[in-house]
């Protein structure tokens, strides 16, 4: 338990409190986008301001997972922290649990900041149950994005990871309708966009803020992404381990 507590203390400071990249890209930027776009679209303010709050939450989670966690883990690997933990700790369970915990905390910060902004500026009025549901959805919806972040953190070069991160984050944000409604995109683009995990999460939050039932297809879609990514990562881990194993024994 002491090891876990130390790991949480160690990661909390560097992932959140001293991580200015997170504060800017995951908190300030989505909040600024939210204020900007909801003030422009005053006509539809009643529904749009709550739905767009959800979109910006998903966008922030995407940035945190791909650009934040992915980068952090790549750096931890290349700078020797992972090796150090493997030697001292025998396995990396504490490390991964800690990263996932702080990632969730980062996303809770996002909900608090964006939610408070939505309440104060656009008078978004949700019940406690709706906020709790959003929290639960964020917890579930971050899993495939986190897995994607962990997967791309295995890229060896920082430069490649940055390019890959940009290539994933911004197209995914646009295609899944986080910046503007997916309905304005061409049909074939919509067909790609509505299969992305960010689309499923955004759609579920949108249903929640509109007091509608959560679409079962969204839950299934997220489930498929989670199972698929876990399978890909398991196969990748097995191949990597075999590469380092003896050819002759």
């Amino acid at each position: 338990m002491q090891k876990m507590i130390e790991q949480l203390k160690f990661d909390g400071k560097r992932l959140i409190f001293r991580n200015y990249g997170f504060v800017f890209f995951s908190l300030l930027m989505p909040t600024a986008f939210y204020i900007l776009f909801t003030q422009i679209n005053r006509v539809q303010i009643k529904t749009f301001s709550a739905e767009y709050m959800g979109s910006m939450m998903v966008y922030s989670i995407l940035i945190t997972a791909i650009m934040g966690v992915g980068n952090f883990m790549e750096r931890d690997r290349n700078q020797g922290l992972i090796t150090l933990l493997k030697i001292t700790n025998r396995n990396l369970n504490h490390y991964y649990i800690s990263i996932c915990f702080w990632s969730l905390m980062m996303n809770i910060f996002t909900i608090v900041i964006l939610g408070t902004t939505a309440i104060l500026i656009n008078h978004v009025d949700l019940s406690t149950m709706q906020w709790v549901t959003i929290l639960g959805l964020v917890w579930l919806g971050q899993i495939p994005l986190l897995l994607l972040g962990i997967a791309i953190s295995h890229v060896k070069r920082q430069e490649t990871l940055t390019i890959l991160g940009n290539l994933i984050t911004f197209p995914v944000a646009i295609l899944s309708g986080l910046w503007w409604p997916i309905q304005i995109l061409p049909r074939w683009v919509q067909n790609i966009g509505n299969k992305l995990p960010t689309y499923f999460l955004n759609d579920m939050i949108s249903s929640t803020v509109n007091n509608a039932k959560i679409n079962w297809n969204d839950v299934q879609g997220l489930g498929v992404w989670i199972v698929g990514l876990v399978a890909v990562m398991t196969v990748g881990t097995i191949i990597t381990r075999r590469k380092g194993r003896l050819a002759r024994g």
Binding site: Q2, Q7, F10, Q79, L81, T88
Partner: peptide, 29 residues
């Protein structure tokens, strides 16, 4: 549980102080 290594990694981790990385190592032994 009683093996340690000084390896060749740079450990240039942003946002981590010297005292903190030593406490992190100490917690593992």
């Amino acid at each position: 549980q009683s093996v340690a290594s000084m390896f060749q990694g740079d450990l240039k981790l942003p946002g981590v102080k010297v005292g903190e990385i030593l406490a992190e190592v100490a917690a593992q032994y």
